[in-house]
Design a protein around this nucleic acid. Structure first.
Lengths: 254, 254
DNA sequence: GTGCAACAAAGTGCATGCAATTGAGGCGCT
DNA sequence: AGCGCCTCAATTGCATGCACTTTGTTGCAC
């Protein structure tokens, strides 16, 4: 994979791209938890650029759904609702089914080798931190997508995979061995064999199991997103009452 | 459709959002053809903002794949390759199948009414310009997606639909009645009936027919993208020769 | 007439500055 | 102590300015 299609669509001038990539990694490795503040100045200072650039990067990340931009407020790492998490996984399943459908029986030797190497890396990182293994598992799926040679598909799969990663860090507590490495191997095997329907089914059940294993129940109460929990009560008679409520909650959670 | 989820993820501060929406519309209505230049100054002047904002808007649009950003060069409306167009349609088919799967049998009276109203509007615009009917057809699909209440799905369907619109303006010459209104009506009927598999099949064939009807053959020669046509010849002994060629072509086409 | 090189115009890349808005701490009042 | 208010620091929103890159053009040599 030559670094040819480097910065084609977005991530224009590199500086922005560097910041985007760095933040993405930090987010999916949970170095930045959902809700973490991302002030433009700090970012700029940290990466040696001006606020303008940091701002631009935040804009891109917001377009990808990884950060949330609120007018006149500090940007934060996105905090998707449980429903959004489930939606993201549903979309991801469809997209990745498409990926493996296109790929079944069409992988070159080199591609298979690359995939195996990646899974090996996943295997050998089992002792390491959860963060790294989650990232590697996600990157396996992105690597797969990149083999379709469809930039659009790669972009969508990447985005939605990152989003799922993010939600995993929110809604799954004891996330040991999220993404079964054995399932990855099975997928590779089926791809090589060229059994399209089989590999689509494999991918489907793989992702679905990750989703259902991780996204345990709608979490009726359980700390954190009190604001989101209260959101449904907002609809009835105007927002002001909820704003007040929100203030109270805010004060209590801190 | 209450304007509730106005500017949540991106399109932050409105001014940027306004420009984005305006440009999107201009692009899908083919007021701006693929390859059209989008200088930051002109945009800023036209919309009464500074280059900074125009630039930001271009960044967002680039992230959506509607415009192409090249370092130190004027941004242009994207010119997707034929393959990219086909890829976009493939993705779109999967996403919209998901949409109707989620929607089958779950539409409220009001939603059905809204859909019918929209299709009526499509019908009554048959005499008008192609641009408007193409836009309306696209918006039907987006309207459908928005009824899933899944912001992520809405975003992806919108994006990919816009992209498809863009490619339609590139690769389909005599585009009369692209998106069969009768097919839209059939989809609504099947949705109301709650026949999931049926409506998925309908949507699939609907989009597929649009794609195959529009994306006629890989267009071996046929004007326009001379540079892209020449691209394959570049690989052999370095880029410089092609750069020269490009210059020649450039000079001749103008 | 053709090719080439230097120049001028236009446009982007980025930083900085100023106005506007928000959140928080401090203050007095009850 | 608890509650509300007010002021101020922190932070974003946006425009402008300067440096650098690209592009089109003019002039010169062959």
């Amino acid at each position: 994979m030559a670094p040819r299609a480097a910065a084609k669509t977005a991530e224009s001038s590199d500086k922005v791209g560097v910041i985007c990539r760095a933040l993405r990694r930090a987010i999916i490795e949970q170095a930045l938890e959902p809700g973490a503040k991302l002030p433009e100045d700090s970012l700029g200072e940290r990466f040696g650029v001006s606020r303008t650039i940091a701002r631009h990067a935040l804009g891109q990340l917001a377009a990808e759904g990884l950060v949330e931009l609120r007018r006149n407020r500090i940007a934060v790492v996105a905090t998707p609702s449980w429903q959004e998490a489930r939606d993201a996984f549903d979309i991801r399943i469809e997209l990745e089914r498409l990926v493996v459908r296109q790929l079944a029986g069409k992988l070159t030797k080199a591609q298979v080798a690359a995939l195996n190497a990646h899974v090996d890396a996943e295997d050998s990182s089992r002792g390491g931190s959860d963060a790294v293994s989650i990232r590697l598992a996600t990157e396996f799926h992105i690597l797969l997508a990149s083999m379709t040679n469809s930039p659009i598909l790669v972009r969508y799969v990447s985005e939605v995979a990152y989003r799922c990663c993010l939600t995993l860090s929110l809604y799954s507590r004891p996330h040991s061995s999220e993404c079964g490495v054995t399932e990855h191997r099975a997928i590779i095997a089926a791809l090589v064999k060229g059994d399209g329907p089989k590999v689509m089914e494999l991918m489907h059940s793989h992702l679905d199991s990750v989703a259902t294993r991780a996204l345990v129940a709608p979490t009726p109460q359980r700390g954190r997103d009190l604001l989101d929990i209260l959101a449904p009560y907002a609809e009835e008679d105007g927002a002001d009452r909820v704003v007040k409520l929100a203030k109270v909650v805010r004060g209590r959670t801190r």
